[in-house]
Design a binder for these strands. Structure first.
Lengths: 366, 366
DNA sequence: CCGGAAGACGTTAGCGTTACCGTTCCGACA
DNA sequence: TGTCGGAACGGTAACGCTAACGTCTTCCGG
């Protein structure tokens, strides 16, 4: 937490007078042109200028032109802060994301932003680095800034705290998590089905001694995938005891460390289900470092199908998730909810298994 | 542009009465608690509440405690919009970025955000997808929202237009571009030196017939790298005529298309300098598709050293750029400029050549 | 020629907060 | 006892904008 008393605005009346440069006046603290300035210049009332600026009716053509000229001449830009206060709508949306450094999220951000931009909204972005406290802080900040709505991607907060925050927002959508329809819409991937598909594919390729790099314990998506894995396990002859499940950060180093740990403790593991493609990338590295050949000694499945998955060595088998589209869906759902239309309580998208070179082909006899 | 008249706020007085759930009151359109509400509850004036909320002196301990209780009881959150209007400082910063989908930028964003968060600022993010018009629109939007400062990463706008926009902001920093110190600070990479290093490395590895995948024509970084290449060329026996320079989008498909084009027109090219690692990744793909072995038939150098560069096949030789640190530098510089301290007019960081497997080792006799 | 409707504009009053200046009150000190 | 400094508060007026309503034209049918 930054100390709010530590940083104070410099007193404008005591600015260093030695730094005045002649010619143009101090570019640091521009005075902003206001509606009233424009009104004075155009010889009309501020209200008329407001009408012109907001393209509302009730202004004659001649006056409208005069106002437009004045706006251009003075370089007037409406003050959205004042407008927001008056209308009590900020035209700003909050977007909470664990970490844009994970290539899964930029696509989501872009999908959301493209739709928001189209609708005339601006985004406040917060990376929350897998930290529940920072997540709560971000949600509170969004509220103080009076955003018109929030999208929380993969929130890690426990149910009660998350719900409390969501309830304080006019509209909300969560991604990769469920939420009561009254509080928030939901866009999520059928992670259980995805994990099941991954596991079946591994087993059909001949893997019997499986391992799971489960990602962060706080991840809901991770939990759902574990359920999927457990469910699929029953139908196969493969084994995956808890000792071969290892958690860790959803990053390349995290995956590398987890895989190294698992593979030294259980050298006989021949199939690896990974939390996401980054963890899988780390696993690939660890396998290489430990001298295991992929997929011959050990098969690896990732999750997300980030753009780079195809560039790995070997090219990664993974589950494709339509991330960009999900961002768009989430944003459209949010806009709908802001309008009071809150029909779609949830969207569930199906991941698609993309088979590349990090797993063995499925055996016919299976 | 979205039609501003198309979207109207729902009339709260005509809310659907069938959706009232007993117990908690309607979570969709919360009424916000104001300072005055707290003041009434605590039996003091709004001004006193303001003092408590802002941790200013002039309030007795007993009163302070009473106010704090009222704040907690009512769940009061200050309205930052109103505060911004009054103080004419929004505590919001604008961050303009070409495309977070390019892994170069998330690190920059994170570096900037971490510093901003520490200082109590929130970020407005705009992806501008290599489009000068969207860039101008974003800068204008930032201005309307009265951000306290702007960071423009890799802006594509021509000088005059960029300067005009920067001048309208109280404080600004540009990344990967120069700017007059009066208008903006600057954090950039010595791209000339980087390109030179790349070229020398290729030549020392035996490459003689070089090609350049130059990225977008509008990129300043790209232009500087071209200068570096040209300068280095003089000192070597290698050749790189304009016909072997091909431009294109800074993405994997863009690089693949460019490389395919170049390699079919000039099958004898044996060394490739790429705009960034994404373009290099595309080139790697194209080379594989065309049956060229890397690095034996053709050596490839990327730029940026994104996290995945080491995972490519072959692992990519590239120039490491300290992206996260640059984001932090840019933000600190911005905060300094906002405070009126604008000493550091520019930071130039040196890229570092990271030699991996996509280039041949340097020959001793060179 | 008049009533009246419609369009074109101005006036007023805040939105929630804080800067600035007053007021009150209490204790210290001559 | 007087008064004087300071701490602890309250009152007032904006910040820039716009909803709501008022006023003044203009113009048309009857």
């Amino acid at each position: 937490m930054p100390d709010p008393t530590a940083r104070r605005a410099p007193d404008p009346s005591t600015r260093d007078p030695s730094s005045h440069d002649p010619g143009t006046h101090d570019p640091g603290s521009r005075e902003h042109v206001t509606l009233a300035d424009v009104a004075a210049r155009a010889g009309v009332s501020p209200m008329t200028v407001s009408r012109v600026v907001n393209e509302r009716p009730g202004v004659g053509d001649a006056t409208r032109a005069r106002v437009r000229d004045a706006v251009a001449a003075l370089g007037y830009r409406p003050n959205v802060v004042a407008r927001s206060l008056k209308r009590s709508r900020s035209h700003t949306l909050g977007l909470l994301v664990p970490d844009v450094t994970n290539p899964y999220f930029p696509d989501l951000v872009r999908g959301a932003e493209d739709v928001a931009f189209e609708a005339g909204y601006t985004l406040l972005l917060h990376n929350v680095i897998e930290d529940a406290e920072r997540e709560a802080a971000a949600l509170a900040l969004f509220e103080e800034r009076r955003v018109d709505g929030v999208i929380a991607a993969s929130p890690r907060l426990p149910e009660d705290r998350l719900h409390a925050h969501l309830a304080r927002h006019g509209a909300a959508v969560v991604v990769n998590r469920r939420a009561p329809a009254a509080l928030a819409g939901s866009v999520r991937v059928d992670h259980e089905a995805g994990a099941e598909a991954a596991l079946h594919h591994l087993v059909r390729g001949g893997a019997r001694t499986l391992g799971l790099l489960a990602g962060p314990a706080t991840s809901h998506a991770g939990r759902e995938r574990r359920h999927g894995v457990a469910r699929a396990l029953d139908a196969t002859g493969a084994t995956l005891p808890d000792t071969r499940i290892v958690e860790g950060p959803p990053t390349i180093p995290g995956g590398e460390a987890a895989a190294r740990d698992l593979l030294t403790r259980h050298p006989d593991v021949d199939g690896l289900v990974c939390f996401n493609d980054l963890v899988a990338a780390g696993a690939l590295r660890a396998a290489a470092a430990l001298g295991r050949r992929v997929p011959d000694d050990i098969a690896v499945v990732g999750y997300d199908d980030i753009a780079f998955a195809a560039m790995f060595t070997p090219a990664l088998t993974t589950l494709r998730v339509p991330t960009y589209a999900m961002g768009g869906h989430a944003m459209r759902m949010l806009l709908d909810r802001m309008d009071g239309r809150r029909r779609d309580v949830g969207i569930v998208v199906q991941p698609e298994l993309v088979i590349r070179d990090s797993t063995r082909p499925e055996e016919d006899r299976a």
